[in-house]
Amino acid sequence: MNNRLLRQLGLLVALISLYAGALAQPPRGPLVVSPQVNADKTVTFRYQAPQAKAVELSAQFEKAPVAMTKDAQGIWSVTVGPVKPDIYPYNFRVDGVSVMDPANVAFFPNERFKASLVDVPGDQPLIHAMRDVPHGSINYEYYPSMEGTTGSVVVYTPPGYDQSPSKKYPVYYLISGTTDTEETFFKVGKTNLILDNLLAEGKVKPMIIVMPYGNIAARVAEQKGGSKPADPTVRDGADAVKRANDFTTDLVSNVIPYIEKNYRAIANRENRAIGGFSRGGGQTLRAAFSNMDKFAYVCAYSSYLSPQEMDGNFSPIVNKPEQTNKQLKLLWVSVGSDDFLYKGTVEFMDYLKAKKVNYKSLITDGGHTWMNVKTYVAATTPLLFQP
């Protein structure tokens, strides 16, 4: 057989293989672009579901689900807005079933349903926007945790960290809320970009930010073959307090030692801060108030402790306000005026004021949202680790 015939046979085999591969692929529908952020700040959402009877958009910037319409190709769409620039979670309801947007790779990390995310940029870059500034790094770390399990944290190091091997940094431990994961402050809160931008503006000190997973009970159950326990029904009930105390034990005994061994952290209380949102804020307050030798800066975002718990478990904090005010360089409490935790958080502020415990506060518009959390992070980080 001559070389020409061999080449022809080889080409024939290749064509047959390509054809067979094409037959094996499932049919592809039309390209769906979603979400599409338009120049006028309106946003177009699309979802392909030819057989669906009804599709709705459910978005955090809408008060109620919005009906979508179907075209001849079976693509449902709706244009809403203009939308105030920010990052928002959303999803589709397809014949009553909530689904993510399959055309969008950005999603909300969560233990339960994972919503998609839409980023509506401002005319001027917002504090969480990607800007042309030096950027820090995000690292995923795994550490030995409670009951023989492996814990996970997301760690931000500031720009220049790897280029300055002799420099040490203060550390901010930042804890997400109920059902959130260790990725939420990174992927939704955009904490790394907020810090990059504030650093470029000279408004914050370079710092390491450690974002742990707050649900120790769920992780232990998962790694030991059990079922994730239901969340506590009472925010300051015995079960909630026990889980918060377990988190504190893990943070103090495992997370902090791991970080201080593997990162160039300044290992003293004046260079440690702790903060958190919602459940993470309650964990923050409990961890800080029971370890005043560990943290000099405390930030509670949309969270509080009841007067009963403060009186019962943390009486030295309020019975010796002069000592507390000397120890804490910052105690911050913030909440949105429409937050379902607004009443309890304001009562906590009033309690601290009556006990003569110094604190700084910020009450914003809006509810229990990550839009507000980004505001709080941008407001508090410039106050950390200042002389």
Rank of each mutant, 00 (worst) to 15 (best):
R46E: 06
F108K: 00
R112D: 15
T79A: 06
V83E: 10
Y90P: 06
A49M: 03
V78R: 01
I87A: 07
F61M: 13
P82S: 13
K114M: 14
T79I: 09
E56P: 01
P65T: 14
I75S: 02
D95Y: 14
T79K: 15
Q73R: 15
Y88G: 01
K84P: 01
W76G: 04
E111V: 06
D86K: 08
P109Q: 08
A103L: 10
V99G: 00
D101G: 10
S77P: 02
D119L: 10
F45M: 05
G74V: 03
F45N: 01
A106L: 09
G96T: 11
V105F: 11
R46L: 05
G81L: 07
A64E: 15
D71H: 06
V80Y: 06
A115T: 01
L57Y: 01
V43K: 02
N110W: 04
F61N: 13
P102E: 11
A52N: 12
E56D: 11
V66C: 12
S77A: 15
P109G: 12
T69R: 11
N104F: 06
V99Y: 00
F92W: 01
N110G: 03
S58P: 02
L117F: 03
A52L: 05
V43Q: 08
M68Q: 10
V99D: 00
P85I: 05
A52K: 03
Y90S: 02
M100W: 04
E111C: 04
V43Y: 07
Q51F: 01
A64T: 13
Y88R: 05
P82R: 15
D95F: 15
E62H: 08
N104E: 14
D86C: 03
P65F: 06
V66D: 07
V55Y: 09
P65D: 07
V94R: 04
V55R: 06
P109W: 04
S98D: 15
V120P: 02
P89E: 07
A67F: 06
Y88A: 03
F61C: 10
T79W: 07
S116F: 05
F113I: 13
Y90V: 02
I87V: 15
P50F: 02
A59F: 01
Y90T: 05
N104Y: 03
P89Q: 09
P65W: 05
S77V: 08
A59P: 03
D119W: 14
V120S: 02
Y88T: 04
M68C: 09
P82T: 11
P65Y: 07
N110E: 12
A59H: 02
R112T: 14
A64M: 12
D119V: 10
R46C: 10
M68G: 01
G96A: 11
D101Q: 06
T79E: 09
P102F: 14
Q48G: 03
G81W: 04
S77D: 05
N91E: 08
Q51E: 13
F92N: 03
Y88L: 05
V66T: 15
M68S: 08
F108R: 00
E111L: 13
A54L: 15
A72D: 12
N104V: 06
